[in-house]
Design a protein around this nucleic acid. Structure first.
Lengths: 200, 200
DNA sequence: GTCTATACCCAGATAGAC
DNA sequence: GTCTATCTGGGTATAGAC
């Protein structure tokens, strides 16, 4: 890797954790630079402004956690003890528990995009990537459960899965006792069970 | 209403929209005071600090939108044309479309509570109020659909409904084309249809 | 209780040396 | 390309008058 590119990457990494921990406005470029092992000047040598640093991060990181989600979903074996997707849901919830910064950063992206419509396209595109990762996994799930995909599109289901994941993660942070490790898996299996099926 | 209490209320209202539009750190007390028709001094006569103003808002507003959610759910007549809960989902999504500030403020609350654990209790309590509003409504739904509540608790379902609502709202803002007005209602009806039922 | 004025500090961005 | 020093603006919080 070129020295330049490495600097950029380190700054982006430092920016990710700092923005996640403090929020966009409260995060200081000073702090980001220091966390990356550089000085403020380095930031401005590589990015036009704080705003642009954030935007680039948004483009780079939006699909982040989703990779893990898709990975887990892919390797998941449905219909296990403790309800279908029990294992799956637990893995995802555990991951979210351990890595609060990912959720915080994603949320920070959304708020920023809401307030700066010019950047919403970046977020939409990144999230599109996330959904694509989910798409082939949930397609397999729909097939296994013999769901009629002329009625329930895989795209729609992928969106619902992501929404559930985001919403439950948020509520679990707010009060863990309300969101058991099994809840995500249970909700998923109820969804699948209730969808219209292909005739035999 | 006492003059004092009225000032407080106006400041809280102004704070709500300003924090929603700009975010906690970027929102200026100056701006809030002006929006309320007062000056900065009035803020400090009524609240100890910016932080405390925000905390009080959090306690007061967390259940906000949920009132509407529960109201709609309560009056909703399931099993209508276009899929069960079609009307319901559309009303909720419409509401969210029109009032972006509520979602932004709630999200702002969550991020702030994540970063200031002392205030998480306030958010948890307020959200508890929201869930309580949902609880008796979803209980009715579970009964109507003859769901076995010894397996599926109304509390768990309420949490899932709220999670879905929050997640879909967020994704609809990101890209409306991915979240049709019907999707929330569809997801709800799939959920209910797939839950274990009481025997006849 | 509310206002105006000010103290105090802090952070984004730029200039110029290396 | 990176650093140090600085310019500049702005925002929380307080003091004192009314």
């Amino acid at each position: 890797m070129q020295a330049q590119a490495e600097t950029r990457q380190r700054l982006l990494d430092a920016a990710a954790t700092t923005f996640a921990r403090k929020g966009y406005t409260a995060a200081k470029l000073d702090e980001i630079a220091e966390a990356a092992g550089y000085s403020v000047g380095a930031v401005y040598s590589n990015f036009a402004s704080k705003e642009q640093l954030f935007s680039e991060l948004m483009a780079e990181r939006a699909a982040d956690r989703v990779g893990a989600v898709a990975e887990v979903l892919r390797s998941a074996r449905p219909d296990q003890p403790g309800g279908a997707f029990g294992e799956l849901g637990r893995l995802l919830i555990d991951g979210a528990d351990k890595n609060i910064e990912v959720a915080a950063l994603q949320t920070e992206f959304w708020l920023h995009a809401i307030r700066n419509p010019d950047t919403m396209g970046i977020l939409a595109e990144s999230t599109r990537g996330t959904l694509d990762l989910l798409l082939d996994v949930v397609t397999r799930l729909l097939e296994e459960h013999r769901v009629d995909q002329s009625i329930v599109s895989a795209e729609a289901f992928a969106v619902v899965v992501l929404a559930l994941y985001q919403g439950l993660t948020r509520q679990r942070r707010t009060d863990p006792s309300r969101v058991s490790e099994d809840l995500f898996g249970q909700a998923l299996s109820w969804q699948l069970a209730g969808m219209p099926k292909l005739r035999d």
